[in-house]
Design a protein around this nucleic acid. Structure first.
Lengths: 331, 331
DNA sequence: GTCGCCTCCGACAACGATGTCAGTGTCTAG
DNA sequence: CTAGACACTGACATCGTTGTCGGAGGCGAC
């Protein structure tokens, strides 16, 4: 900036005024400064400005999602980015990988860089460590999973309702032996979805069978193995509710291998890529990651703009997409 | 930092020394400072430090990809993140959307934030505007597309070879009427893939038919329409080479609708999600986005660590995955 | 005892920008 | 002609941190 000022023959403050489009600079001076800035390829340093600026904004956001390579997370990321770009806010994106240590490291990295706000998916047993930041007025929005030990804005899929709906859909097709395949019970969404499954069974008067409930499936191959076990039972399930994306894919693979995909009904939680092109096409409870990201970003910016209402929950509804696999009736 | 110093009863410089683990601080003082920092939940401001620090590093990277929601881009992003996290480097990720204005805005946003390096996918006709940064020693690596008006490290899929291989594969199955479906000829990868297609035809002595070459397909529905047109020709193609991800999906949808998916052969460039679960399963030329991201990050860090060799091209090979659709023989 | 070296520590300037304030010049109303 | 308002400008302090430098004290070698 000093160089620009020297070249234009003005003081640094005047350059600052021109760059920030403040008033009280003559047209002539503006032209000279602009030309000098152009000539020197001057780019202001937002961090340095931020140091002295009154509002202390860095125009930067920290986003922590499951994994930037996961389609659900990627859609959330994209929605956040689209909201941020309009405000000239840049987004730091990190992957959680359901690793508590990564949560800690990422949040710390964000805070050291003085982001204006945080959008977080979490795995640690408690997020109380963010208390000081919240009190200082930093906007924090949790997405996909509810925080513990802290009250803050949270954007959630309606997991309970979606899982119940999936289960009711299968019950409605006449199924009574419906298996539940889910991932680790430590994860908020997994717990909720299992709860929805059990509740729907209860309301219909169907006693849950522990044999049909398999959890802690982290990867596709584990889901495949689980299906293999289920189909080998004396009284195998006639339908499967798969409570997560990758698990659904594992289930499809395993059912195919057994030649059972036209016989055993399947409803998955969270949409699967290419679902409508598979045969049978896959019935799912679709989430709306774009809405989740958009709402989270909107709330962050509302807070930055002064909204000081009490923390709020945003529940994003799911949508049942009937494509075929969920409408198979028991034999 | 001032507060920590006061609380610990030492000077600010001593706090700085403790935080940065410099030598010449007594164990007793270290303990006092650490305790004060803990008590005040002190987080150093990396940007302020960077202002004065000799190396001027912000431990920050700018990454511009096609779209963070696209699986290919997401995999690149993930690979970059994994490399960065080990060096405590945070990544700004942005989406290009093949919009020149977005390229300009994103790069500017990165530069204003003084990132240590750039990993870019570009769309503008020239990247000469980055000349000054390159000269100042900022590492810039281009991924997926070659830059124009600038010599810099570049990581590319072997588009020419991959496209030629796809075409040869179809020729080898006996096809002579092979359609080419690609996106905008303005895009580097599209040009290269078309070149590979034409070259393979030429080497085999097959005259290209302009009727069978359709370009500028940006979205799935356009690809579907193109297939409809192709199948309505007097002498329709017996095979299709689809030069991009989304186009391949559109082709599959359209072939299905015509009941032609078991009759018309298909090879796609870039893998498609769930490809092996479709019927017929989709034969593709798979790219390796993880390798691309990893190589780009490695090169950025090598440059930051002082590597000053001339700019280099990294060509990442493709892999032909035969799954069925590409092995259909002409009737 | 003195010199030199080393450890430990803090005062101060500086990084690149902005907020404050005061100074100059011009215009308008009385 | 003068006072007051307002446009325009730059000097200076400041943001949170680190580089430089010098001072105080301890220790070993001569």
């Amino acid at each position: 900036m000093k160089n620009v000022a020297d070249l234009a023959g003005v003081g640094v403050k005047t350059v600052s005024r021109v760059i920030n489009q403040e008033r009280h600079v003559s047209a002539d001076t503006i032209a000279r400064v602009m030309q000098a800035a152009e000539q020197l390829q001057y780019q202001p340093d937002v961090q340095a400005g931020n140091l002295r600026r009154a509002d202390r904004r860095t125009d930067t956001l920290g986003l922590l999602v499951g994994s930037v390579a996961n389609p659900f997370s990627a859609a959330v990321h994209r929605a956040v980015e689209d909201a941020a770009i309009h405000r000239h806010v840049a987004v730091f994106a990190s992957s959680l990988d359901d690793d508590p240590e990564r949560e800690r490291a990422s949040v710390e990295a964000f805070l050291r860089r003085r982001v204006d706000g945080l959008i977080l998916t979490t795995i640690q047993p408690s997020q109380a460590y963010l208390g000081p930041q919240l009190e200082q007025g930093m906007p924090v929005v949790f997405v996909d999973r509810r925080p513990n030990g802290l009250v803050a804005d949270t954007v959630l899929t309606d997991n309970l309702d979606g899982a119940a709906r999936a289960t009711r859909h299968l019950l409605g097709a006449g199924h009574r032996r419906i298996a539940f395949l889910g991932d680790s019970g430590d994860i908020y969404t997994a717990k909720e979805r299992k709860r929805g499954y059990l509740e729907a069974l209860r309301l219909e008067g169907v006693a849950p069978d522990a044999e049909l409930v398999i959890e802690n499936l982290g990867e596709e191959v584990q889901a495949e193995a689980a299906v293999n076990r289920l189909l080998a039972l004396a009284d195998p399930p006639t339908a499967i509710f798969s409570a997560q994306n990758l698990i659904t894919i594992g289930v499809i693979t395993a059912l195919r291998a057994h030649g059972a995909s036209e016989r055993v009904a399947l409803v998955g939680f969270d949409d699967v890529p290419m679902a409508s092109l598979l045969s049978p096409a896959v019935t799912v409870i679709a989430q709306d990651p774009t809405a989740i990201g958009a709402i989270a970003a909107r709330q962050i910016f509302a807070r930055l703009d002064g909204n000081a209402e009490p923390a709020q929950d945003f529940i994003v509804p799911t949508r049942l997409i009937e494509r075929g696999s969920g409408e198979i009736r028991p034999v």
